[in-house]
Computed example of a mutant assay.
Amino acid sequence: MHKLLWGAVLALMLVGCDAPREQVTVHEREAVPDNLSAWHVVEAIDGKLTLNERVVPYDLNTALFTDYAHKLRTVWMPEGTSAAYGEDDFDYPVGTVISKTFYYPLAEDGSVLRTDDYSGDFAGSGLNLDRVKLIETRILVKRDDGWQALPYVWNDQQTDAVLEIAGDAKRLKLVSTDGSAEEFTYVVPDFNQCAGCHADNHTEKAIRPIGPRARHLNKEYTYQSGKENQLSYWQQVGFLSGLPELSGVPQNVNFKDTEVALAERARSYLDINCGHCHNPNGPADTSGLMLAHDEQDLRRLGVCKPPVAAGTGSGDRRFAIVPGHPEESIINFRVESTDPGAMMPELGRSLVHEEGAELLHNWIAGMPGNCSKS
């Protein structure tokens, strides 16, 4: 009788326990799942978007603008593997899975909020699904023959996301802290658009990560265990090998940090938002306009540089940058436009990034010199 009683108690205890969570699963290229949950990287569980074991969140010094969306970025690598440090690119091991979840904080009426405040978003290292609206999660997975990009779109119930190779579009109302509202269409890129942005070497046409590079990752992140430099943390958990002294690692700045020189902030902003195309090997190499972090030639950076082709894309302005005159500069025209034939970046936004546009306006307005001899 005693044994039977304890057997019944044990059975009840086991029923009440949560089932063990499945480990991250790397699916073959030819058999990618229709549902994001099948990867077991980030999953909606009990009202939270949770990170699996050894899935590490990360952030960037300055991030690519995407219609004021908030982003939860993660990286996972197979047990016993690590990325090899490189100043421009890390050599990630086969099987690496990088995810980026786009979402917005929720307003009480169900609209989404335009805010820089992330404090209400998180539940542990994941997201509180009562407080946010999930839009999409993009997966980058490293294969034997290179990276594969996969866009998943979240359902309205926020229980799972579905693979949408053709992309998607969602009509949203964005509400600012002052109460003003703006309706817009959030566009989820299709597979080819994902590949187009991530193939920052136009010759190789190979997809690779844009954000998780040394200069973008070289910053502190608040983990559940406390604040720590992200690169040091990756090294500690075995995700990064060959990391030099942090003093020798390049570092972009936060474009919103007014304690930093205006030019540094503007260059960091251009690097992450434009440099993956506007570099000597990028899709925009024929433009001659180079906006990556390491460009030192002012002419190639756009100062008094005429466009390759005039017309709609240039706003009939003569030079990419006219020192002291943002109102005459093509760069300002394009970042302040929402015309698909003129705006830059040409993918990933439907709205003007007002803070970024203001930064570039102030930077160019303060430049010395003129283009009178050009």
Rank of each mutant, 00 (worst) to 15 (best):
P244V: 02
L14P: 07
D297I: 05
T66P: 02
P280Q: 03
K48D: 14
G146F: 01
C277H: 05
E328I: 11
K256N: 09
S268C: 03
P306V: 11
D117W: 08
H278W: 06
P323Y: 03
R267C: 10
I98Y: 00
K142N: 14
N155D: 14
S232M: 11
H276S: 13
N281S: 14
L60D: 07
G282C: 04
K133E: 13
C304N: 01
K71A: 05
L127I: 05
P306W: 09
P189Y: 01
T62V: 09
L106E: 12
R21M: 10
D190R: 09
E245F: 13
K71Q: 13
T50Q: 12
D91W: 03
N370L: 05
S241N: 14
I330G: 06
L12M: 13
N155C: 09
V237S: 07
P189M: 00
S247Q: 12
A11Y: 13
Q251F: 08
S176Y: 07
I98A: 06
T338P: 02
N229Y: 08
V303Y: 01
W363G: 02
A31T: 13
I272Y: 00
D34R: 14
Q193P: 00
K133H: 14
V132S: 05
N201H: 11
M367R: 05
V175C: 02
A8R: 11
R29P: 06
R114D: 11
T177C: 01
A11L: 15
H27M: 05
S37M: 10
H278D: 07
A266L: 01
Y221F: 15
E328T: 07
F191D: 13
L129I: 03
N273E: 06
Q224N: 07
F191E: 12
D168L: 04
G16Y: 04
L270K: 07
P212A: 10
Y104Q: 00
G242W: 05
V308R: 15
A84P: 04
P105D: 06
E182I: 04
M77N: 05
T159A: 06
V132M: 07
V253A: 09
R54N: 15
N35R: 14
G366R: 08
V15G: 01
M290F: 15
G196N: 12
G80D: 05
S372K: 13
G302A: 04
